[in-house]
Design a protein around this nucleic acid. Structure first.
Lengths: 357, 357
DNA sequence: CTGTTAGCGCTTTCAC
DNA sequence: GTGAAAGCGCTAACAG
């Protein structure tokens, strides 16, 4: 130990001051400093003030890592999403971060691009960092590897947007099935008979659920389900629509199962000069910013995006809380599986009168 | 020490296994295990395989905190933004996280809602967590408190979107001034004489820069700058436009300085049945998803969003790298101040022919 | 190749 | 009220 250091603030200037440096500088024991930074109980007002001043002077900031090592929480939670740039997930993320902050925790975000490998990688990094809990949008609801990893890990996890099959892991998702059913029924109520369902990435849980909801409603009305799972980008949507138009039985409605598909369909319809909703009605799953601004305005099924993120985070911190209380990893109650209601927003593209708002 | 524990994997099941548990279980020293998890050099293939197996069995994951304590990097960087839900910042965030990942680091995101208090709070939490570096969108470019905090902190920082005044802190921003000038000039080239500039939050650095660019171009053409700094939401924009329309000298063009303002203006114009661009041309700063889909499509100045995030992150890791090399906190070179080019995307609303794309 | 040992910065008994 | 000392899980000399 070179005592000279303690007197010279410049010496290790590029390194953070430590608690013991503060202690030495203040002429007190490390315990006292520790007490001061943890609320200052059981410290005489005088020492308290003095130590605080030294802390201020040195610009001391406690090193979280050291605390963690003593077995405490890291005050961080991990959020694993397919993409941050996607408005759906970024809104979720915003909500999650708000709850995290309210619980005095930080949010670490990683993105998977829906790749299971990347997902596992991200998770293991987060586990190494000992995040207190995890919120995850599973790339593959069925993944074995994922279920195993999560199963053996000693921390609360909640899945959002897509549940994790067969796992006792809490989840918060939108009611995709019912939402799609409502949407389809609405189109049927408008008198549509040939409703085409444009899916996109039909391997995803959410899309499959929506497909099922659509099928259910269509069949209940004794109509024929018509799927197009080939669509992917603007080009493919244009191609698909062009084909239908030229076919023997052109559709009278399009139900698009995701945001981007809805927009592509809208653009294609616009390009082909098809009157919406007169010739073909359009309804999309998931709301988006300018849906009400374009002409005609686009009717959609809205998901409670922000609520999904918020609820998930709340459940996570609840679990964290119980875990602390009961010592055990609180697998006590069966994991909550929450399904949030969606909401039909009728605008013009389905045939409803334009909202006066 | 209760030796019994070491033999019984169930004993502390809800706690992560430690390196020494692995060592004991494998019948080797801790150093060996440490070597194994750090690449496995200088370990006999046999021991290596054996230890790996034990690690696998126990589901051991190294505790980052302990490593950090040994003076190593935390492999985390902090990103402090006004909001994650905002497409601009979420795109930045996505880019930053990509670079972080490429550098084997995690991204911690916190949001300030442009509140200086919250900003300082967030920063100090991040510093406690000893993030390796910081990327920040300063709420207030002028803030003293911010400059001080950042100045004394022992880690690289780069500001994005808005620089930090008077501070030797690297920054990556768009060339707002030139972008606005180009935009205004373009409107002038279209023959516009009375170009109204709708600002919104005129206290922000970016907005002020854009205002200056607008003024410069307008004055160069011997026209009169017309600002409306009052606009805030759809209502206020409608009100402002209504007023101008009813006034003695209605404008022939609107230059909106931010995304939401552009959209509000578009909606107001639509609502009042003003022909765009024939009666009033419209040009916005910052591109947005459906700008090309609405009718008329909206011309905008596009910012290299993704590049801003990427460059900032790259600079950060560069600094991190140099810091490690030279030991010193690498304030060697003067901080880089990067200004990225913007780009005019002419669509219909300014009077240009609709792009054929 | 492998193990022993001394801390990293902090919290926490347990004495004083 | 206050401090000494023992670790938390890991890495890094330094011996064998």
């Amino acid at each position: 130990m070179e005592l000279s250091l303690s007197r010279n603030p410049m010496a290790k200037s590029h390194t953070h001051p430590t608690l013991s440096q503060v202690a030495r500088q203040a002429g007190v024991g490390t315990t006292t400093v520790s007490r001061v930074i943890n609320g200052g109980d059981h410290v005489s007002p005088k020492t308290l003030a003095h130590v605080r001043r030294v802390i201020e002077t040195l610009g001391y900031m406690p090193n979280q890592a050291a605390r963690i090592l003593k077995g405490h929480r890291t005050k961080t939670i991990g959020l694993v999403v397919p993409s941050i740039a996607d408005p759906f997930f970024s809104s979720c993320a915003e909500a999650v971060q708000a709850v995290a902050r309210a619980n005095d925790s930080l949010l670490i975000v990683t993105v998977t691009a829906n790749d299971p490998r990347t997902e596992i990688d991200n998770l293991s990094v987060l586990i190494r960092h000992r995040v207190d809990g995890l919120i995850i949008v599973p790339a593959d609801s069925q993944s074995h590897a994922l279920r195993n990893l999560l199963g053996r890990v000693a921390m609360p996890v909640v899945a959002i947007d897509r549940p994790i099959a067969n796992a006792s892991i809490a989840s918060v998702v939108a009611d995709n099935f019912k939402g799609a059913m409502t949407a389809t029924q609405h189109l049927i109520d408008h008198g549509c008979k040939r409703i085409v369902c444009l899916t996109g990435e039909s391997s995803l849980y959410t899309i499959r659920e929506r497909m099922n909801g659509y099928r259910k409603a269509v069949e209940a009305a004794h109509l024929t389900p018509i799927f197009d799972t080939s669509v992917k980008d603007l080009k493919s949507v244009e191609y698909a629509i062009r084909n239908m138009l030229d076919g023997p039985h052109p559709p009278d409605a399009i139900f698009a199962l995701k945001n981007s598909t809805t927009i592509y369909a809208f653009e294609a319809l616009q390009k082909f000069n098809i009157a919406v909703p007169q010739s073909i009605a359009l309804l999309g799953f998931d709301d988006f910013e300018l849906a009400s601004t374009v002409r005609p305005s686009i009717s959609v099924i809205e998901q409670p995006v922000e609520e999904i993120g918020r609820r998930a985070a709340e459940i996570l911190f609840e679990q964290l809380f119980h875990e602390r209380e009961s010592g055990a990893p609180g697998a006590s109650k069966p994991a909550r599986q929450i399904k949030l209601k969606t909401c039909l927003i009728p605008r013009s593209s389905c045939g409803c009168p334009a909202p006066t708002a």
